[in-house]
Write a protein that binds this DNA or RNA. Sequence first.
DNA 1: ATGGTGGCGCGGCCA
Length: 255
Amino acid sequence: MKIATWNVNSLRVRLDQVRDWLAAANPDVLAIQETKLRDEDFPVAALEAIGYRAAFSGQPTYNGVALLSRQPAANVGTQIDGFEDPQKRVLAASFGSLRVINLYVPNGQSVGSDKYRYKLEWLAALELQLARELRAHEHCVVLGDFNIAPEDRDVHDPAAWEGKVLCSAAERAALKRIMALGFCDAYRRFPQAEQTFSWWDYRAGGFRRNRGLRIDLILASEALCPDCRSCYIDTGPRGLERPSDHTPVVADFDF
DNA sequence: ATGGTGGCGCGGCCA
């Protein structure tokens, strides 16, 4: 199973890039975030035309998540149980015995803001949800835009980002608690070049200067970690005309 | 440099 994540920053704008990437990379599952589409506007036919089924949970203008897959999604969930949230940020589904949970973690805006508090509350609720998912499903992949750079080596300029949103101690601690439920970071199971990132700000030539962060993650449950054969970031789409500010991350599992 | 760019949707929010 080849499983990937990509924050597309508007599926309407990026549909051709997504279709091209699916045709070239041929993943079994692609988790996308920031679709920014109402469910009734989701391009089901355009994806079915290239052999992908779609499950989605969207809203106009903001947020929105989807799972594009060769086989149809089963047992689809769109909520963190017990956490009322109108923002569409979670999409869980089963593909055979594999549970896949696609996340668009809140950005948090700035440390100390209302949105930052919402992010930390959301992550605490997510931790409980993932504990439940792990109890029900031994083989879990949790992936998406985490809006957290796990460590300083995931940051182009750790000194400039120290304590800032996406890098703050409280966010990293929340991620560590989630990892401690029993997940590995697929990317860090393998040797990787330094200064490799998955997101670069549109402003000030961020990508050209490789001023990025690794905030798009693929977590595998402990039972699944030994089956992970590779994990890589595909920077190709970030270099296209009119790109998303994120680029795909891919993990290949013997599963 | 408290900026810069991009998406949505048409003013201002969000990232």
